[in-house]
Simulated assay, not measured.
Amino acid sequence: MANSVVIGLTGPTGAGKSTVAGIFAELGCAVIDCDITARQVLVDCKPCVQELCEEFGQDIITESGSVDRALLARRAFSTPEKSHRLNAITHPWILRRVKDEIEQWKEAGKEFIIVDAPLLFESGAEAFCDKTLAVITPMPLRLERIIRRDQIDREMALSRIRAQQEDSYYTQRSDATLRGEEEPGELRRQMAALLERWRR
């Protein structure tokens, strides 16, 4: 098993985590996308889905038997309390799978394993990590990115931003910070330097 370095990657929605995760992959790191893991949990974890139905309504299940993620998101992001309930239900199941994925990558001999988790600190996933890295970007650019990426209106995008923490929440808890508005070439240079610094 490799003496791997596990890096938790986090930051608010629209900050540019996906771009950073993509560059890490190009640099040879294993990347665990917790959003993908979360979607898998909604597909095949029956106890989790059952609990979500009890909290957010049986109608979040479509006729085909899958979870209507858009409807679930609308209800979950409607208030901070509802967002908290969504996380309290889903996080334990997601964390279990992330831990398994980390172990698989360690056994495969990966030197760096990136855990791309929007809710790294809120979920407790930072406990699996040796280092943590935040990506932050000015709010107007984040808003523009979210509207374009998710094809939602400004108000819905703002509600997603409001449901999350301030930039300082991420930067104060992380070992390093990247600016998501940097040019990809500059980002890549900074990230390669970070990996060199964090190499065991």
Rank of each mutant, 00 (worst) to 15 (best):
L194C: 06
R145S: 10
C29Q: 01
R200A: 04
R188V: 15
V43E: 08
R149I: 05
D100M: 04
L195T: 12
P118G: 01
V135R: 01
T177W: 04
E144D: 11
L119F: 03
I161D: 03
V6K: 12
A88V: 14
E196A: 12
D44F: 04
S66N: 11
R154D: 06
Y170A: 03
S123A: 15
C34E: 04
C48Q: 12
G22L: 10
C53M: 15
F121A: 14
E126G: 12
L158H: 09
I114A: 00
P80C: 02
H91L: 15
R173C: 09
A70C: 01
N87P: 09
R149D: 11
F77C: 04
I89L: 10
T79L: 05
T62N: 12
K82V: 06
S159R: 15
P138A: 02
E26P: 13
E107D: 07
L52V: 13
K46S: 07
W105A: 03
M1C: 07
A88I: 10
A73R: 04
R39L: 02
R154E: 13
L195Y: 00
R142F: 03
I147S: 06
L194Q: 05
G180S: 05
A25Q: 12
R149E: 07
L9Y: 07
G8S: 08
T10R: 13
I102T: 05
D130S: 06
A38N: 11
D68R: 05
A15H: 02
R75L: 15
E155N: 13
D59F: 04
F121M: 11
I102S: 08
A38I: 08
L52D: 09
E103D: 10
E107G: 05
Y170S: 06
H84D: 05
D175N: 13
R149W: 00
V20N: 03
K131T: 04
R162V: 04
S174L: 09
G65L: 14
V98S: 13
G22S: 15
T79I: 05
G124S: 13
L119I: 11
I7G: 12
D167E: 05
M1N: 12
E126F: 14
P47H: 00
G185R: 06
Q151R: 14
A38R: 11
G185L: 01
D167L: 02
L95N: 05
F121N: 11
G11E: 04
C34D: 02
G28P: 08
V31W: 14
Q164S: 10
K99H: 12
S64M: 07
M139H: 08
A2H: 06
V115G: 08
R148P: 03
L95E: 01
V115W: 13
I114Y: 03
Q104N: 03
Q172F: 03
Y169N: 04
R199Q: 08
R173W: 03
Q165A: 12
K106R: 15
S159Y: 01
A21L: 04
W198V: 07
R96C: 14
D68Q: 07
I60V: 15
A157G: 10
L141S: 01
L71I: 05
V6H: 12
W93D: 02
D68C: 09
C34N: 05
C48I: 08
